[in-house]
Design a protein around this nucleic acid. Structure first.
Length: 452
DNA sequence: GCATGATCATGC
DNA sequence: GCATGATCATGC
């Protein structure tokens, strides 16, 4: 064994417990997200000697070996066979508009001219390998070694949308038909729309041409690939900028607030246009919350990342006098459980102990709703004492008569109110009745006093 | 206009 | 299928 192999051996021994579930695409994706905003050498402890630095190296191979901890294969099936996921690592460039664009086509797999003519689309080797792909995007920079190139977009677990699949199948058949006609040597990327037969191989004068089944003319080797324009669509539709909350200078607060900066003072309708995220109807109750999540995450929601960072965003709409339109709800509690709980073990306790990010939208003098500002907030101690009193009063009263719980007139801070899918969404009570689900709420006037 | 009750769309 | 964030709806 040379040094690289022996190090790798130790590494694999150490990694017998992989930090992700090999059989679960979601788990693999989640683990891949750990690369977001980082370079490979930041993500794993790479020893320079492991790879020949002068050799430009293949980032995809290195990611498989050192990040995911398995030895790259060139089998026909997907890289993560159990999960049916093929790993792709591809470069992007930053366009003058600031958006990321594909540096080049995304190569899927080599075309075997002889074998292809015997395949049907449904049993094609292309589909077998690339039905689901985990795509990682790194920023291409010419003179930077591959392991120092940064993964700039979130990874995408990609399967072809059905409407695209129809086009791709036609493209695939177009390519196969050309080989059937003995014209493999005439293949061109321009023959097709999304899927293309791109040149792949050494090229040049000494290139060994490949055999094709229905002609004696040798053909240059080609691979199935997704055209750059198609990769750009994947980037636009499925990614958001990585490191949106990847904290480099240690301040989660600053990183988060920065995300809101461009939208401060902007009318909600304009934010909606800019993010291309629109209210689905009068009853789209999650809209402002989701809009907030998209300001933070671009085209996708970012709940999980925020949770990890210990941030709970709360969207508050206020009128021009800064009075919230609504009270603030928390998770429901179970009547049969709360009676045996201690305050410090309760969900409400853990909620109000944590830090919130208040995202305030305000109706201006002309009744236009605008993003007014964001503010980190924790509940002051004296109010937590009052919240505890309300909670303990609730626990006591659930035991007596669960239908009579603290209302908002009984405390300046919190009250109890229904919160369920509908009137049929009920839970058992100690009295043997079924009662609508309820939760703790922070009073409207209390929130008003806090955002002032 | 406010307190209270009822419910919606969404993500996991 | 359900918890969740949040808003809508209603009656006083």
């Amino acid at each position: 064994m040379d040094q690289a192999q022996s190090l790798l051996f130790c590494y694999n021994q150490y990694m017998t417990q992989l930090p992700y579930d090999l059989t679960s695409p979601q788990s693999i994706l989640q683990f891949a997200a750990g690369l977001s905003g980082k370079t490979l050498s930041q993500a794993v402890n790479l020893v320079d000697t492991l790879e020949n630095v002068k050799n430009k190296g293949d980032l995809g191979t290195m990611v498989e070996r050192y990040y995911f901890g398995y030895e790259p294969n060139s089998t026909k099936g997907p890289d993560f066979a159990e999960a049916g996921v093929e790993l792709k690592t591809t470069g992007v460039k930053k366009a003058s508009t600031g958006k990321y664009k594909a540096k080049e086509r995304l190569v899927l797999n080599m075309i075997d001219y002889v074998q292809l003519v015997d395949e049907q689309w449904s049993n094609s080797s292309l589909l077998a390998k690339c039905r689901v792909m985990l795509i990682l995007f790194y920023l291409y920079e010419k003179d930077v070694p591959v392991f120092d190139r940064r993964f700039v977009l979130d990874p995408v677990l990609f399967s072809f949308p059905v409407e695209d699949l129809a086009v791709i199948q036609r493209d695939w058949e177009t390519i196969r038909d050309k080989i059937l006609a003995g014209k493999a040597h005439e293949l061109s990327e321009g023959d097709t729309f999304y899927l293309a037969a791109c040149r792949k191989g050494s090229g040049g004068v000494g290139e060994k041409l490949r055999k094709q089944p229905f002609s004696d003319v040798g053909a240059k080797s080609r691979a199935f690939s997704l055209k750059p324009s198609y990769v750009n669509r994947i980037i636009n539709d499925f990614t958001s900028e990585a490191s949106s909350l990847d904290i480099t200078d240690g301040s989660i607060e600053a990183a988060t607030e920065q995300k809101f900066q461009p939208y401060l003072g902007m009318a909600v309708d304009d934010i909606a246009l800019k993010l291309d995220f629109h209210k689905k109807g009068k009853n789209d109750k999650g809209y402002y919350s989701n809009l907030t999540m998209r300001i933070l995450g671009g085209k996708k929601l970012v709940t999980a990342e925020l949770e990890k960072a210990g941030i709970e965003p709360k969207t508050i709409r206020v009128n021009k006098n800064w009075m919230p339109k609504e009270a603030m709800s928390f998770p429901t509690f179970k009547y049969m459980e709360i009676i045996d709980e201690q305050w410090e073990d309760s969900k409400f306790y853990s909620k109000i102990e944590q830090k919130f990010l208040f995202v305030v939208y305000r109706y201006d003098e002309n009744d236009v709703l605008r993003l007014e500002g964001v503010k980190y907030w924790n509940m002051p101690y004296s109010d937590r004492v009052e919240a505890q009193r309300v909670w303990e009063d609730t626990r006591r009263r659930v035991g007596v008569d669960a239908s009579d719980l603290p209302s908002s007139s009984e405390s300046t801070v919190a009250h109890v109110r229904p919160k369920g899918r509908n009137a049929l969404d009920v839970l058992p009570t100690p009295q043997g009745t079924m009662l609508q689900k309820k939760c703790f709420w922070l009073n409207k006037a209390y929130i008003a006093s806090q955002i002032r």
